[in-house]
Write a protein that binds this DNA or RNA. Structure first.
Lengths: 215, 215
DNA sequence: TGTACATCAGTGAACGCGCGTTCACTGATGTAC
DNA sequence: TGTACATCAGTGAACGCGCGTTCACTGATGTAC
């Protein structure tokens, strides 16, 4: 409290920070520019110097989320295809679990529709690309079937996204067994769930399938 | 307009109908009891005779959604395990595409959190059970691996749910190719995406994997 | 180094809005005798 | 069949709220000469 100064000096950053905090604890619906301003000890219109409107602020938060997710995905070790694919899925689901409300905003659909914020769309695409590249790489190395990269990527992303959403909202009965559950479902996608799929034993995950994952 | 009568006679049904229509076209956030009442030519408090509050109305809509989904899933032909599994996935994704806003409400998470509306939770569980039973059945017939039913179910549900959400919101680049895309990803889950998974030719879907699904 | 001035980052007041919900009420309906 | 009365389904007015956003403004800062 050194400066009750006229010029705040740090408003945009502080506002973003507080908005993110609010998002985390109360969800996107709880974010209001007026409330934010009040908490920052600043008049509401002051925020309009830095954010053209509420939606833009939300979009910026979502962009930050995608950037963080992209960074994490990029950090995954790409040595062996299978490990990379599994690990990328684990990282993805972990992110969603750590930031459920941010994740919901990023993929909310209704709140930030596609096309309204080009930068946001680009940020989302970047995250997607990491996964796609990993798939493409694994396929090129012969680890995956010659199915189109787009198809395999769609399957992988749908799987981790669906798992994230369902467990975040508690729709999956007995989904305590993270990250075993994630690894389990990813293994199913890789190895197949049909009974005469090959039993690769290069991974321990296959054994874990045998023990019941609660329910 | 036969009766501008004091007693409406049909208020609860009409209100639900209109609320559903609003949900479909504008999303859950657009539903307000006051607006509903106005459109129905009735005072706002009148609705409180029939809905204890706004949330309950939303919950009822979601319950209706789950019931409809459950019915559709139950209608799937269970003759052969593989066909049943694929078909159930197709029906699921089709439902989501036909009713995106209703689907979002059902699985929104933040709007209708689990535990707040027991009937809603039950309705959701009913839909889940159909899928689970189909999986359990397929496993018992030896079509699926001996992995826990809960794990396979989680994988299948995550896959269709994720695919639904992503395509509804346009996050999957070039997801025009429905329902080929759905069938493709489901086949991957069944047969595996690893290169030395067996090439069952009992289904034509395996061939479809070879042609690019846009992107 | 000092001053004039443009620019930037705030301010308070106000517009206009719709919301959920409660209250005390009144008109219509259904039922028991 | 007629009447008294309980119950049900509406009403209008009001409470209290917070919201996004615009407006004309003022105080602070930075820059050119």
């Amino acid at each position: 409290m050194t400066k009750p100064a006229y010029h705040h000096g740090d408003l945009p950053i502080q506002a973003q920070r507080l908005a993110l905090e609010t998002l985390r604890t109360q969800g996107d619906a709880a974010i209001s520019l007026r409330a934010l301003a009040k908490q920052l000890g600043v008049s509401a219109p002051a925020l309009y110097r830095h954010f053209s409107d509420r939606d833009t602020l939300l979009a910026e938060l979502a962009i930050g989320g995608f950037d963080a997710l992209t960074d994490r995905l990029r950090a995954v070790d790409q040595q062996t295809p299978r490990k990379a694919l599994i690990e990328i899925g684990l990282v993805y689901v972990t992110f969603a679990h750590e930031e459920p409300n941010l994740y919901r905003l990023m993929f909310g659909g209704r709140v930030l529709p596609l096309g309204a914020h080009p930068q946001l769309d680009a940020a989302g695409k970047s995250a997607f690309k990491v996964l796609e590249n990993t798939v493409a790489n694994a396929r090129q190395l012969g680890y995956l079937k010659p199915s189109p990269v787009s198809l395999i990527t769609a399957a992988a992303w749908s799987l981790v996204h669906g798992l994230s959403q369902l467990t975040i909202d508690g729709h999956l009965p007995g989904a305590k067994a993270e990250p075993m559950l994630t690894e389990g479902v990813l293994s199913l996608l890789l190895d197949g769930s049909r009974s005469d799929s090959p039993q690769h034993s290069e991974q321990s995950s296959q054994q874990q399938l045998q023990q019941d994952v609660t329910l």
